[in-house]
Amino acid sequence: MKSIIMVGASLAIFASPAFAEWKPDGPIRLWIGYGAGGGTDVQGRTLAKEIEALRGWKVIPENKAGDDGTVMSAQLKSEAPDGQTLGFAITTTYDFAPMNSDNLAPEDFTYITTTAGSQMAVLARADSGWNTLEDLQAAANGGEQIVWANWGTQVEAGAELVARGLGISVNHLRTEGGKGALNALVSMDANVGWGGGVQKPLVEAGVLKILASAETGPVALDPEKPTLKDIGVDLNLGYQYIITAPAGMPEEIREEIASVVAEILANPESETRQFIEKQYPPAPIVTQGEALRTQILSTYDANIEMMKVFDK
């Protein structure tokens, strides 16, 4: 619900033609922080195509994959903030990853707009017979060894927090990306795992089951399931897809680019919007301007707090 209101709000603020002053001097390079062929890549490339169609700017997508967008971001921050080099990654890249990195800081970037949000959930194989985290807890207490598939430090910390909240002990398996976590689940190398959105076909097919939502609200695929907060674990692992630029980008450029994206995502005919509705339901999430900047910085602080638990 919130996201839809967001779209409306941003439209009212940014879509007015008065801002359409800025024009790029030559092609815009959109650096996609993930490998070619994945969901992020498809979203980025469709968006590039639609920006080109809407404004007539030449937008060239380039893949700079690695480490959840941080490899791309490390290169992006030293580019000129002239709106002609943009990055496409997820908010985690900016509000968690800098903690473990010498060459990234949240202040290194201009945050232009989010496009879509994750569907973070705790998953298990359907044949495990578990329906909720309580079932998992019972199985663990019954002596079953729990192996949790994670693709990064943040979600591994999250898994550990959930385990502590449930009072059980789990072994963590680090996988290659979100898809790797699903593979580990399906091939029985792990029995619990995170899914950020790629789990959709497998959940719909009845191979995997959602135990709980790790978003602030329930996930679209299984709205009946509680959030982690409902069961007493104060954790939000949701993330959004985000377009960024190097720090110090002039306001008018940021607003112009943000308004183009908002306009595209508000159009029900838009290919990007349709892709998002299918892949990251229910609708695009468009947060821009100061609100977005505040969100990134405050989540970063919250994440630092979260990780302090592990320092002892």
């Binding site: 001097d25 030559g26 092609p27 030449k58 060239i60 002609q84």
Partner: peptide
């Protein structure tokens, strides 16, 4: 043109 970057496409 302002430079090669502007014409690189």
């Amino acid at each position: 043109l302002s430079g090669y970057r502007a014409a690189s496409a």
